[in-house]
Simulated assay, not measured.
Amino acid sequence: MGQWLSTMLFGADHAIKPSCGQVSRNQRRREEKQKRREELHAQTKIIKKKQREEAKAARQTNFQQRLQSAIDAGDVAQRDAMITAVREARAEHVKAAQEKRDRARSNLKNAVLGVCIDCAWWEHMNEQEQKSLVKQIRFCYAAASKRAADEELGASACIWLSLASASPGWERQMDKTCDGWRSWALRIVSDEDIDHESVSASRTLVYLSADADDELDVLSPDELYVIGGIVDRNRLKNATIDKARRIPGCLVKRIPVADLTYRVLTVNHVFDLLVARAAGSSWEAACAEALPKRKEKRQ
């Protein structure tokens, strides 16, 4: 892949500008519903954090009481055994957590299946949409890392994630939203300096679009799957498929889940489906595993 890839796949020159029409009633309702969902999610996180802290405090109190009982009884052997057991359990927990992180990072670096999120439309989204996209990218990386940490899976069943056309504005938003993202096993592909380890002539580009005619069946290491990084509230219709059709040799496919879920899926939902499929699940099982209940079609 040469200069045409730099200018056509990862450049923002061909992005479609959003229309300046007024916000429709349905769009306003969707935004209000999304806002309520995010508020509920934030409240749930606070409640779960408080529950974890209370459970931890209860365990510590119970241990202190048992330890004090052993001290009061003058049982030095029991006291030392309790302290040693706690230290060993803590060391084992730290060791297991580090091994899990190392395994995930190694599998991500050596993964043979690749997915790229094209952020070429960043400047054509408003601030709220940009924040939403950054959150979805964070969810994507978390899903990839969680799957890569699975002891039963190797690098061949994992997906490495790359980002294209990452602008300075995108990096600033990532710094605000995702602490430590610069240490992720994430490949950044820019239109000025293409990472040939991420995008090479040996891979066939496959742009994913719900409007495509051909269906995606099995994921192949010979293909690079591109997801359009758009949170447009239905403004940039057909933007991804139109861009893909301008790229020589680029294929356009859709994930065959139209009968199982609604056509409009977020970036992280599409990525979650690919992660589940890469691990060996059927598309039906991937939908049940990766998508929330609200995305399921009512029969």
Rank of each mutant, 00 (worst) to 15 (best):
I247N: 07
R235E: 01
T204N: 02
W4I: 10
F10G: 01
C116W: 00
K109D: 06
V94F: 00
K109T: 11
H124A: 09
A258Q: 15
D214S: 15
Y262S: 04
R138S: 09
H196T: 15
S200I: 12
I117P: 00
K237W: 02
D211V: 08
S209I: 09
R52I: 00
E129R: 15
D72P: 02
S132C: 08
V76G: 00
M8E: 07
A85C: 00
A70S: 13
A239D: 07
A149F: 11
W181F: 13
R36W: 04
R182A: 00
Q51K: 14
K293R: 15
G229W: 14
I71M: 02
S24P: 07
I194K: 02
Q27E: 12
I46W: 02
V76H: 11
L208I: 15
Q128D: 02
S24M: 01
N110M: 10
A149K: 15
V231F: 03
D80A: 14
Q22H: 12
S190T: 15
L163S: 04
D72F: 07
N126C: 03
Q68Y: 06
A164L: 13
D214F: 11
R263V: 07
R277C: 05
E284H: 13
R235K: 06
C119T: 14
P256Q: 07
V189H: 10
G228R: 06
L186F: 01
E123I: 10
V252C: 13
E88C: 05
E296I: 13
E215A: 13
Q43P: 03
E152D: 05
R28M: 10
R90I: 09
L274E: 06
L260N: 11
V23W: 00
N26R: 15
R147M: 03
D175W: 13
Y141I: 07
L67Y: 10
A239E: 11
A70Q: 05
W122D: 02
G74T: 15
G169W: 14
R90G: 03
A155R: 14
D72H: 10
D222E: 08
